[in-house]
Amino acid sequence: MILKHLWSYSKSPKYDPYRAISTDLKIKVVLSAVGWNLLFGIGLAVVTEGVFHVLEVDMGKHRTVDMFSKYTLPQVFLMMVVLAPVIEEFLFRGPLIFFRRSSFFPWVFYLSCVIFGMVHLGNFEDSSNLLPWAPLLVAPQILMGFFLGFLRVKLGLVYAILMHACHNGVLFFLVSLTELT
């Protein structure tokens, strides 16, 4: 169901929240968005890794991995699962409300998705050398920006923060498993 709504929304983004929807249904929508976003995002990341491997492009180390060696597990959890979602959602999705009645809303919506993705280019060790590859490299984050923006508009900022926290929580769990073994 959510994919149908996302596809329809992608064609013509409007600031048009869902009306009279229960909290239980909102949570189901968020969890569905997390699942689909992880599936598509991991798929994009695998394709990117494959392309970079074939072309012998060195992406360097991801900075998230460094966090696990510099900070304690609770500190990394706080940064990844609590602080980053709150700060990033206020920065990237919060301002959408100022354009809710503007004819520029679709442009602002998509621009917020792209900027959100591009900011994550800084997660890579040698991001300046990867600039030509930026769209492919941060495609998963741009996609996530779309999911988050959709939830922000349809359900509210709190639900975008919740999705972001759940998404980062899954990644935190997966990375911590590989870093602690």
Rank of each mutant, 00 (worst) to 15 (best):
K4V: 14
L44P: 03
H53I: 03
P17Y: 10
M80K: 04
L44Q: 11
L44K: 13
L121G: 13
V153G: 01
L143W: 03
M144N: 10
N129Y: 10
P140T: 15
G35Y: 07
P135A: 14
G35A: 11
V57K: 15
L39I: 14
H120K: 09
L39E: 00
P132S: 12
R101F: 04
S10V: 09
D58R: 11
F92A: 04
V158P: 00
G35I: 05
L136D: 00
L96H: 10
F109D: 02
L157W: 08
F92I: 06
P135K: 13
V82G: 01
H120P: 01
V175E: 02
I42H: 06
F104G: 07
I21Q: 08
K4D: 01
V119L: 14
L78Q: 08
Y110I: 09
L130T: 02
E125I: 11
V158I: 12
H120C: 11
Y18N: 07
T72M: 02
I97W: 13
K28V: 11
A134I: 12
R100T: 08
M1I: 08
V86R: 15
L44H: 07
D58F: 09
L31H: 04
H167I: 13
R100H: 12
V47D: 07
L148W: 05
T64W: 04
V51S: 02
F90C: 07
S10H: 10
Y9P: 06
V86E: 09
V51I: 14
W133E: 06
A165I: 06
I97S: 15
L174S: 06
K61H: 07
V86P: 06
S10C: 13
P95Y: 13
A84D: 02
L151R: 08
V170Q: 04
C166G: 00
G35S: 13
F146H: 10
A139P: 00
V158T: 09
W36P: 02
N123Q: 14
V57D: 00
D126T: 10
A45G: 09
V138W: 00
W107G: 12
F104R: 15
I142P: 00
A84E: 11
L111P: 00
P135Q: 10
D24Q: 13
V30Q: 04
P106H: 06
A160N: 06
F104Q: 13
W36V: 15
L25Y: 09
L38A: 05
W7C: 11
L121F: 05
Q141G: 07
R19L: 14
K4F: 05
T64P: 04
F173M: 08
Y15I: 14
L131G: 12
F92S: 00
V54N: 04
Y15V: 12
H164T: 05
L157I: 15
V47A: 14
V51F: 05
V57W: 10
Q141F: 11
L136F: 05
H164K: 09
F40N: 00
L121H: 03
I87N: 05
V153F: 01
G94W: 03
N37M: 13
K154S: 00
G149K: 11
M59E: 06
